[in-house]
């Protein structure tokens, strides 16, 4: 047996097993501990299902439902915005393109917190956007964009969008533009070219961007916490709240397990949907 690949993979495997697999297993274990009574964060050596069953009440199910709905909305918005943007980038010539790419990637050099801070100030009740809307007489009272679903959504979309755009841009760049010109030459209108050539050829990238939006949207923490409403939050926010505000590690761990399960199920559903769509003979009978 050649030891070299094992030596090469060793450090990374150690990191992954030690800091990913072990913690995840530990989370599962912790989720079955009884809560601490007074000292520490849990009672060692105990087993209980109480933490998991606590999530089956109306409040717990509401949390899971909100998280799934939030992730789905993020996925839809991210795909709908990043695909046209990626096609737009492809249509640009080098100097404008460099400018646009810089604009899209620049926020990724900043902390997530900066972007959310900027959004909070821009879209707040007294922020410049509301002031502009008021002066132009479009609205009579400031739009409440922060501390609600809209704020949480927009915050997360801003964080995920740059990745999705770059991912899709790479994908549409790989597509040979000759394919689209030849479709035009065969008599297809711009819309028909998009519908029959560009869109089906971009499907793998769109699927990936959708997955990205769904997974990161369901795991969203900072957007919902800082820009969302305090009542309706995602599982991630609740995980942090349980662990730090109430010191209930077992509850927090149980929520983590739920979140992973929910993400897994939603991903499987998305994959099923994608296979069903692309399993059809593409561009077949009208």
């Amino acid at each position: 047996m050649n030891p070299r690949p094992y030596l090469l993979a060793g450090p990374a495997a150690t990191l992954l097993i030690g800091l990913l697999v072990c913690p995840l297993l530990l989370v599962i274990r912790v989720s079955f501990y009884q809560p601490a009574n007074g000292r520490g964060f849990f009672t060692p050596g105990t087993w209980t299902l109480a933490n998991h069953s606590a999530l089956m009440d109306a409040h717990g199910l509401g949390l899971v439902g909100y998280t799934i709905a939030f992730g789905t909305m993020i996925a839809v918005v991210v795909v709908m915005v990043s695909f046209p943007l990626a096609l737009f980038l492809r249509s640009l010539h080098s100097s404008l393109l460099r400018f646009a790419i810089a604009g899209i990637t620049l926020p990724k050099f900043a902390s997530v917190l900066v972007i959310l801070f900027g959004l909070q100030q821009l879209l707040g009740d007294t922020g410049p956007v509301n002031r502009m809307l008021l002066t132009w007489g479009i609205v009579s009272d400031p739009l409440r964009m922060m501390r609600g679903l809209f704020g949480a959504l927009i915050g997360e979309v801003f964080l995920i969008l740059p990745y999705a755009v770059i991912l899709l841009f790479v994908q549409v760049l790989e597509m040979d533009p000759i394919l689209e010109s030849s479709a035009r030459g065969l008599g297809a209108s711009r819309w028909q070219v998009f519908r029959r050539i560009t869109l089906p050829l971009s499907m793998p990238g769109l699927f990936l961007a959708g997955q990205l939006g769904l997974v990161w949207g369901m795991g969203a923490f900072l957007g919902p916490l800082l820009l969302g409403s305090p009542e309706n939050t995602t599982l991630s926010v609740e995980i942090q709240r349980q662990a730090f505000e109430y010191g209930r590690w077992p509850r927090s761990a149980a929520l983590s397990v739920q979140l992973i399960l929910a993400i897994g199920i939603c991903l499987a559903a998305l994959t099923f949907l994608h296979n069903k769509v692309s399993g059809r003979p593409l561009g077949g009978d009208r």
Partner: peptide, 20 residues
């Protein structure tokens, strides 16, 4: 390089102009 549509079968490639 022929620019055949990679996601369509040979038959659907040929029928493209008639489809549209």
């Amino acid at each position: 390089n022929y620019a055949l549509f990679p996601h369509l079968s040979a038959r659907r490639n040929v029928s493209f102009s008639l489809d549209v």
